[in-house]
């Protein structure tokens, strides 16, 4: 609508201020959400990138995977009944390289499966982030709980667990190092997998939350994100509220000469839309640029999907904020406004 646009043109400074606040808030939101996503990859890419299925832990483990031990007979029975199932274990630890330098890793071992790397005894396959720490194929690594040595067979991309790079080792080596015969977890890559007595089942998502620190980390970041979204909504409400208060007389006159209340609402909506869309376009562009330029070591990962989803939320929240502030317009009596103007 023309009148909305005219006001913005005449009062550029006012609207520019609101626009830049919305830009900053939305940009911050995008950056934090990129960080949250990046950290979650860093924390649990191993689990996150697994296909949809069911995870099983021993019921006595109280949902903590490293307390879980699955009975060997039961494991064999499940593996037989469910082709594609895999039993696996994860333990935090470290490897020493030829110079005796320590590198912390998450040891992963499993029965034969498409989902995990297959490794022979005395071999090790590492997450590619360890390349940056100077480890190469053919290097010999050791571990103080392991009698033998590991030869690096290769690298895989984006396999992280609890912020540490994953190290795939053979089950026999694992059993020696950690002195357990049982595996911690069984994974069945099927949507509705059966129940087993003595085992608790988890979806991909709930299993992620069973990883220590994962849910705490994600929850606090998500809380910041939603706070920022709410703040931006309140900014709209407060900003338009204050502008409306200044314009009560004007709205009264426009109503007196016969303008519909809905036309006044439309005026606020148009202004809110223009400001938000311009601010969002800027921060979407900048955050995508940041996604490309972020330093390699920084766990930052922002997809366009996330950005678009958050943008939609910003628009909706802005709309609600502006509309709430508009309710006072509805109450304005043209007569009062005229008389106030004459006082």
């Amino acid at each position: 609508m023309k009148i909305a646009w005219k006001e913005m043109k005449k009062n550029k400074a006012k609207f520019l201020i609101l626009g830049s606040i919305i830009f900053l808030v939305s940009f911050l939101t995008f950056i934090i959400s990129g960080l949250a996503n990046g950290l979650s990859q860093d924390n649990a890419a191993l689990i996150k990138d697994m296909p949809t299925g069911q995870f099983y832990l021993n019921e006595d483990a109280k949902q903590t995977y490293n307390l879980s031990k699955i009975d060997i007979d039961l494991q064999e029975q499940i593996m037989e009944e469910n082709p594609g199932a895999a039993a696996f274990s994860v333990q935090m630890g470290f490897v020493n390289d030829a110079d005796d330098k320590q590198h912390s890793v998450a040891f992963v071992t499993s029965t034969e499966s498409d989902v995990f790397e297959t490794v022979q005894e005395g071999e090790i396959i590492l997450d590619s982030s360890l390349k940056d720490e100077g480890i190469a194929v053919g290097d010999v690594l050791s571990n103080n709980q392991f009698s033998g040595e590991f030869i690096v067979k290769g690298f895989v991309d984006k396999k992280k667990y609890s912020h540490a790079p994953v190290a795939y080792i053979n089950m026999t080596n694992y059993q020696e190092m950690y002195r357990v015969m049982e595996m911690q977890t069984i994974f069945i890559p099927a949507k509705d997998a059966p129940m087993f007595i003595g085992l608790e089942s988890f979806s991909n998502k709930s299993f992620l939350n069973a990883i220590p620190s994962y849910s705490a980390e994600q929850m606090s970041l998500n809380m910041i994100i939603w706070f920022l979204v709410v703040i931006s909504g309140m900014l709209f409400a407060i900003f338009f509220y204050m502008m409306n208060v200044q314009k009560i007389g004007l709205y009264g006159i426009l109503k007196a000469i016969g303008m519909k209340t809905i036309a006044l609402f439309r005026m606020i909506w148009v202004q809110m839309m223009v400001i938000t869309i311009v601010a969002l376009a800027l921060s979407v562009g900048l955050s995508q640029l940041f996604n490309v330029l972020a330093p390699a070591g920084m766990p930052f990962h922002l997809t366009l999907d996330t950005v678009m989803m958050l943008s939609a939320v910003f628009l909706i929240v802005g709309f609600i904020g502006a509309t709430i502030s508009g309710f006072q317009i509805k109450k304005i009596e043209p007569l009062q406004a005229i008389q106030q103007g004459e006082m």
């Binding site: 009148i3 009062n11 004007l250 004459e342």
Partner: peptide
């Protein structure tokens, strides 16, 4: 049509 004591014009038009 309305005319009041003060003109009540829209300031940004």
């Amino acid at each position: 049509g309305f005319v009041f004591q003060s003109s009540h014009l829209v300031p940004f038009l």
